[in-house]
Each structure stands twice: as structure tokens, then as C-alpha cells.
């Protein structure tokens, strides 16, 4: 196997939630490497720590102990500014419950990360609005949602909401996309459409880390990590990687 840059590398990560009386050991020493461009599925029973691991890896939360190296750099010294930068530029997160803002349109939902993009030169000039619009349109096109630009989230189906959420996650063209049970709230057809989008993104070179309960969904990935009780118990390659039959889902 050729040497590919490790985008994520963690050693003995633990996470303890201390709520006063009780201490929950959500992660009990997780070590893993993920290479750039990989499509990894994480599976495991409910409460096993999948979401916790995703949050730590995506900088939404910090590990209690252990080393986390992101693109070769120790994340221990990352300050608030650096974390904001990574969340904005390097990472996209797709949630099981979509997390769209109900009061604003699809356009504004997808545009949200651009409001916090203080790093790309194009957003600093006068053409802001126009380039933002182009970028939002492109993101929506890549999830086939451009026709719903001015809809409100409440007017969309679950599958459509999730595709809008994916558009939001990829608007800043992040290296890694984290998806925590993105198909969990969807029927199988909508779920397949979402998986199709993620496959496409992976083919374009995005690293995808996906949490799922369903083995059929996990088999779209190249590699499956199994996690039980806060520990990785299995790490294997998928031999017959599944791929969405596009004729089927797009009718």
C-alpha cells in the first residue's frame, strides 16, 4: 500500500464526562489513523462512543486525555482562533438531525459558514455578495438542490434537508467531512441519495468519516471501524465497496 498522508492520527484518546456525581467514560483509549481521501465508516452499538469520537476528531469537543494529531500537528496547542479556523475551513459536519436554522431560507443556511470565513480573500472584497451567491449555488448544485434556493427548511423533505446540510458542510471546500448518522432520520431512498452525494465527494478527494448503524450503509465506505464501550474492537477494509446505483435512485 502506497504511503498516503495521515490527515488524522490519534493515540489513546479518552473522554470522560463528569456531571458531578457520575463519571461517564465515553472513550477509553482510542487509537487510529485516517489517511487523506479515505472513506471510513464507524459502527457500534448505541452509547458506545461513536458521536463522542466524531466530536473530538472534528474539534467540536476536546479529548480528556491522549494525543490527537491533525495533518501532522499536535492539536493540544490549538487555541480558540485556530479551532474556529479549522471548523470553518478544513472540516464540514453533517448531523443526524440536520441542524438547519428554521427561520431562514435554504440559501442563508448554506451561506452560514461564509459569514465566518475571514480567511479566504474573495470574501473580503466588494464582490462579496456575488461570489457568496455563486459559491452557495455551486454547493447546492453538487447536492442537486439548486431549485430549492429560496425555500424555507420547513418546506423540505427530510432527504432534501440533509442534502442542504451537506451543501453547507462543503461550501468552504473542507478536507474532511464528518457525518454522524446522516441517513438515520431518512427513508431508504432519501438515504441512498445522501450516500450518493457523499460517494461523489469522496471521489473528488474529500475524506469522509461516517457514523452509521446500518451495515448496508457502512459498506459504502472503504473501511469500517467498530467501536464497543469506548474502544475500537475491529478495523477492517471493505472488500466489495457498495456504490449507489444512480439510475435507481434518480428514477
Amino acid at each position: 500500500m502506497e504511503k498516503i498522508a495521515k490527515i488524522i492520527s490519534c493515540k489513546d484518546i479518552t473522554k470522560v464526562f463528569d456531571t458531578g456525581e457520575t463519571k461517564t467514560h465515553a472513550l477509553r483509549g482510542v487509537s487510529c489513523d485516517i489517511a487523506e481521501g479515505e472513506f471510513v465508516a464507524i459502527m457500534g452499538p448505541s452509547g458506545s462512543g461513536k458521536s463522542t469520537l466524531m466530536h473530538v476528531l472534528s474539534f467540536l469537543d476536546r479529548a480528556t486525555e491522549g494525543g490527537y494529531f491533525f495533518r501532522g500537528k499536535d492539536t493540544k496547542d490549538f487555541d480558540e482562533e485556530k479551532l474556529a479556523f479549522i471548523r470553518n475551513q478544513e472540516i464540514g459536519f453533517v448531523f443526524q438531525s440536520f441542524n438547519l436554522m428554521q427561520r431562514v431560507s435554504v440559501f442563508e443556511n448554506v451561506e452560514l459558514p461564509l459569514l465566518y470565513d475571514f480567511y479566504t480573500k474573495t470574501t473580503q472584497n466588494k464582490e462579496d455578495k456575488k461570489t457568496n451567491k455563486d459559491r452557495v449555488m455551486n454547493a447546492l448544485k453538487s447536492v442537486s438542490m439548486e431549485h430549492r434556493l429560496h425555500h424555507m427548511p420547513s418546506q423540505l423533505s427530510g432527504g432534501e434537508k440533509q442534502r442542504v446540510a451537506i451543501a453547507r458542510a462543503l461550501i468552504n471546500n473542507p478536507k474532511i467531512i464528518f457525518a454522524d448518522e446522516p441517513t438515520g432520520n431518512l427513508d431508504s431512498k432519501s438515504g441512498l441519495q445522501v450516500m450518493h452525494v457523499l460517494e461523489g465527494l469522496n471521489k473528488q478527494g474529500h475524506t469522509i468519516i461516517l457514523v452509521t448503524h446500518e451495515s448496508r450503509t457502512a459498506e459504502h465506505a472503504q473501511r469500517i471501524l467498530r467501536i464497543v464501550d469506548g474502544k475500537i474492537v475491529d478495523d477492517k477494509r471493505v472488500h466489495n465497496q457498495r456504490s449507489v446505483d444512480t439510475d435507481n435512485i434518480l428514477k
Binding site: 482562533e81 470553518n88 452560514l112 465566518y116
Partner: peptide, 16 residues
Amino acid sequence: VREIGLRKAVGARRRD
């Protein structure tokens, strides 16, 4: 709270 969480998740800094 959720909206704030979301904004932070997509890159909002404290001061934003």
C-alpha cells in the same frame, strides 16, 4: 443554544 452551537461548529469565533 443550538443555533449558537451550529454557528460555532461552522467557524464562528467567540467574539463573533
